[in-house]
Nucleic acid binder design. Structure first.
Lengths: 338, 338
DNA sequence: CTGAAAGCGCTAACAT
DNA sequence: ATGTTAGCGCTTTCAG
């Protein structure tokens, strides 16, 4: 049988209030009784119940994390950083894979609320973002992670997607590419990345073809299909910007299946700088998000909320960084020949 | 302000006991009042507090999952399956990355206990497994996942590691390999896989060299170092069995850095059949764990525990399956020449 | 079929 | 410096 605060109080010959005070280090307790209570706690292996304390003290020391799929390396890596930051502050994380399905997301949201989590981190996509409204009205802080939804008045910690797209395309253009395709995932991030890319093209006086810009989901297969679509025709792009690494891997596989050499026949640039980009052959050039910083900031914001009930909403935008791999190359006469 | 059971009771003109009964579908409630209460609940957007109910009803609808690192694709994939099974039963999962450090693991264990989770799934490694003892004595069910520690009397759901190692080596032998190296991760699984492999060699009358069997941690870098160690000498194995896909990727990179062609100059076989094995070039031959089945069984076992307080401990061993990739090849005269 | 009442383990005034 | 007491929101006998 697990021992309770009563057992400790009785064994130590004090009241439960005193025990509570030494546990929480509140109030004034003489060093002598403090020591004694501590000793008894040790002896009885007393473990304060988080559940009971949450019912009064208002804290569950738990955050909820909604992501599309923990099996996706980008989210797994983000989850790891978030968890580390949370643990450092004594919090743990409930993970919720939504597959970007609104219904499942809402179910999780309500479940998390019923569990009285101390904060929710949203890193998944909603078809209908207004579903979030009821939760934004709550006491529980909500933070959008790696995602910016302009229409929503909510704390946001993200990377500058527009800038990332711009950097990717700018880099390709500098390498001499003029025929550039984009495979993006549906959702706000994808759109911003596309826009950023288009701006870079516009500034360079390059036009783009709408059939070379496709929106898909974010599996490898989606990237494969999207790229295949562009590459099968005789006139094809000399470079493709895939808006995340999973898609980029799909693009790479499509190129390989079509007998195209990367980067000789096709340059590919990804986004996220996940494990994937480092293990494919050739190593992907990719736009890196500072996930670690983002995770740190996210958790800090959540923690600050605990003390300061209502901080005004803030959006923090981190800058992405291009990581050079071997999947991109300058356009050469040879690659223009075919 | 969130509405409580009292608000609903008052608005519906009934007692909180009645509301509780319709929420939990217990006792006998007339259809008429049930409807009314339900309607009021809807109107007031009443969300029963999991915390309060856990304090009495004994259920938090939460499982804890200890794994070495969620950023490792094998664990991320396992977590996803476990989560799906858990959600189907109304449970959610707290993830805990321990990096296989005993201290951190124990901290998490105690935290989970304080949170009164309804079960713990252990998928990480302990240097000192006896640290688990105190938790095995508890009410809270504990399950070892994808790991078998013979010395521990605990529910276990795992893959037949010995058999997996056997299959891997048997396959290589059938391809004509005689010079076989093994890179394994420290821990019970790694050991079993090595033993299985050794048995296959023994049965085939092949001897092994102890310097070609190395134990390391489980990062890509570890696999790289381990392989490099074996491959740099003039006399090197013609095939390497890496005891998980991360290691296999490291082995592959080492081979590439040394100018060895895979599979022509070196065959590589991995373990786990994760995403990684599918995206590297060449695609890895690997031993697949039926993670989905294992996850299903694990959660079911945990759930059964809720009703039947003390089921006798059981170990369930699933059979692995070899997935043929392009990283293995028969020994040919050409590859024997160098 | 419904309600009153006694906790679950803990926190936080308020007394002493 | 320490103890008393009133809840937190809900479940569960036990009466009615």
């Amino acid at each position: 049988m697990k021992s309770t605060i009563y057992d400790v109080a009785k064994a130590a010959g004090v009241s439960i209030a005193t025990v509570s005070k030494v546990v929480n280090q509140t109030g004034n307790i003489s060093e002598k009784t403090r020591k004694r209570v501590l000793r008894i706690m040790e002896e009885l292996q007393y473990q304060p119940s988080v559940v009971a304390s949450a019912l009064t003290g208002k804290k569950t020391s738990t955050f909820g994390l909604l992501l599309s799929n923990i099996a996706n390396p980008f989210f797994a890596e983000a989850a790891r950083f978030l968890e580390d930051e949370a643990r450092a502050a004594g919090y743990s994380i409930v993970m919720c894979s939504t597959d970007n399905e609104d219904e499942r997301s809402v179910n999780y949201l309500s479940l998390l609320q019923r569990k009285q989590v101390d904060g929710m981190i949203i890193a998944c996509h909603f078809t209908d973002w207004s579903l979030l409204h009821p939760y934004l009205a709550t006491e529980t802080p909500v933070i959008l992670f790696s995602k910016d939804v302009p229409s929503l008045n909510v704390h946001t910690v993200t990377v500058d997607d527009h800038q990332g797209g711009y950097q990717a395309i700018e880099y390709l253009i500098a390498k001499g590419h003029r025929q550039i395709g984009i495979v993006a995932e549906t959702g706000p991030s994808g759109e911003h990345r596309i826009r950023g890319g288009q701006q870079a093209m516009k500034e360079a006086g390059i036009s783009w073809r709408s059939e070379w810009i496709t929106n898909v989901q974010s599996s490898i297969q989606d990237g494969y299909n999207g790229a295949r679509h562009m590459l099968e025709h005789s006139e094809r792009p000399s470079a493709i910007f895939a808006c995340n690494d999973m898609l980029a891997v799909g693009v790479l596989q499509a190129a390989q299946d079509l007998g195209l050499q990367v980067p000789d026949d096709l340059s590919i640039i990804g986004f996220d700088d996940t494990l994937l980009s480092q293990i494919v052959q050739p190593r992907l050039t990719t736009i890196s998000q500072p996930i670690s910083d983002m995770a740190h900031h996210t958790i800090q914001l959540l923690l600050r909320h605990a003390n300061t009930p209502d901080i005004s909403k803030q959006k923090v935008i981190f800058q992405p960084k291009l990581m050079e791999g071997r999947s991109t190359q300058s356009v050469t006469p040879a690659s223009n020949m075919d």
